[in-house]
Amino acid sequence: MYIFKRDKKLYLDIFYKKKCGLNSIIIAFGIALILLGVYYVKINPLPLIHGIDINENYSNGDLLWSEPLLERDVPIFMIIVICFAFYEDYIGNAYEILTFYNKEKFNVLIFSRWLVYTVMILFIALANVFIQYIYSIGSILDVLVLMMRFIPPILFISSLCLFIIVIFKNFIPAFVVSIIYVVLDQFSGGRLFKVFTLMGNSFFLENKSLFYINRLSLIIISVIFVYFACRTSTKI
């Protein structure tokens, strides 16, 4: 009677294939961000000297300037995406049966969905970064510095959001706490959260080693948040 077109595991399929609304929003946001990058680089270019070594001259390369687009707007969009992706798990009781069907000691379903959305946003953000800084990239180290500057804040806010959703089984506290984190961090210019600031340009970080400590801290905390979120969500 029923013909199955799918013969693969539906871990991801049933969860994001039908979330056309969310996917459309992400695609629209991605296109807007890339166009904005093109606008910056062509019409309103960054005061960068062509060929400057970003790694050697972090401050000279003007990476110390504030990047509200990538350190405020993209993280806020990330929070909205994660909340939207997970709210239906907890608004009803869907998480109970989905948790029961998880066979691993790690909630694969939560991890894979978080990963898909986070990677999508990171990819879009990086596309914007590389368009903006394309004339300043001289070596692979420059690429690494740019990635260190712009990946950890998005990763951190995404994992923080997931962690709170899973702990409270509700997306509202996650939305509120994550938004407050981003806004307070911006208002305080990074002074409030010190080593956990999202801003790569904060006063605390006007030093290359502190910059790396900050970025590494964000990445480590992100991994811990995701790990605990996926571990604790194997139980209810």
Partner: peptide
């Protein structure tokens, strides 16, 4: 297993 409030995603 059938939980007390059996729910899956509406879509």
């Amino acid at each position: 297993y059938l939980p007390q409030n059996f729910e899956i995603y509406n879509y």
